[in-house]
């Protein structure tokens, strides 16, 4: 990757020992960590501010479904890393298989997420709070277990965080399909697999954010 390669040029100054695309992706992921810090930090701050009246996640959210969803995302992370391993050994068939599996797993995750959103909105949880007269309102707000403001805050923070994570996963799936198409055209044969590794880094990052999100929002 030395610039303007010409004979007997001394090696370019020793950088960080990582090729430029990977370094670029890691630097971009550092900024994404700050972005999710803002969102998750707000959730923690709002929750700490209204500690006792904060809804218990199990009452509103469907834990088993999202646990399965987490499992799907972890599997997609594994298939991604398998694809990278295949790419390094120049095993084109394996690369294509694992990439397709990763795209499918990612798409399932987003699908389950959309299903969960539809179910929650139907139940009455909105970004602005709990819709009055909705089954959720009947169960929680009217029975006094949950104040309207705390529900409002929970709705706002929940939809913003998981919404933006879903958005990042969707972008990942779209980019992954381009990578897969290129893989089917043999774009990553002959040791040129950097593209796979870079998209893999992004994908694992998105999985890592979900692991933290799943614990903080759904379990605690």
């Amino acid at each position: 990757m030395a610039p303007a390669v010409q004979p007997a040029a001394p090696p370019a100054e020793e950088g960080i020992g990582v090729y430029t695309q990977k370094l670029g992706m890691w630097v971009f992921l550092a900024s994404e960590v700050m972005f999710f810090t803002a969102l998750i930090g707000t959730y923690i701050i709002l929750r700490w501010g209204s500690a006792e009246s904060w809804p218990v996640p199990q009452d509103i959210l469907n834990i088993p479904l999202t646990a399965f969803n987490t499992f799907v995302l972890i599997c997609s992370s594994v298939s991604m890393v398998k694809a990278y391993a295949a790419a390094t050994h120049d095993d084109q068939k394996g690369l294509r298989l694992w990439l397709v599996l990763t795209v499918l797993a990612g798409a399932t995750f987003v699908g389950v997420q959309v299903l969960e959103y539809r179910h929650l909105i139907h139940e009455g949880l909105l970004p602005s709070g709990i819709r009055d007269g909705s089954p959720l309102a009947a169960r929680l707000v009217d029975s006094g277990k949950l104040t309207a403001t705390a529900a409002g805050l929970f709705g706002s923070a929940f939809f913003t965080m998981t919404g933006f994570h879903g958005f990042h996963v969707t972008c990942g799936v779209i980019c992954m399909t381009f990578v897969t198409i290129k893989a089917f055209r043999g774009g990553y044969s002959g040791g040129r697999f950097h593209g796979v590794e870079v998209i893999g880094l992004y994908w694992h990052f998105v999985d890592l954010v979900w692991i933290i999100l799943f614990t903080i929002v759904y379990l605690i």
């Binding site: 709002l46 602005s128 104040t147 409002g152 805050l153 913003t160």
Partner: peptide, 12 residues
């Protein structure tokens, strides 16, 4: 979207 992050009336 009518969220309440910074609105005191909504607990923000």
């Amino acid at each position: 979207l009518g969220t309440h992050f910074y609105l005191p009336t909504g607990g923000g």
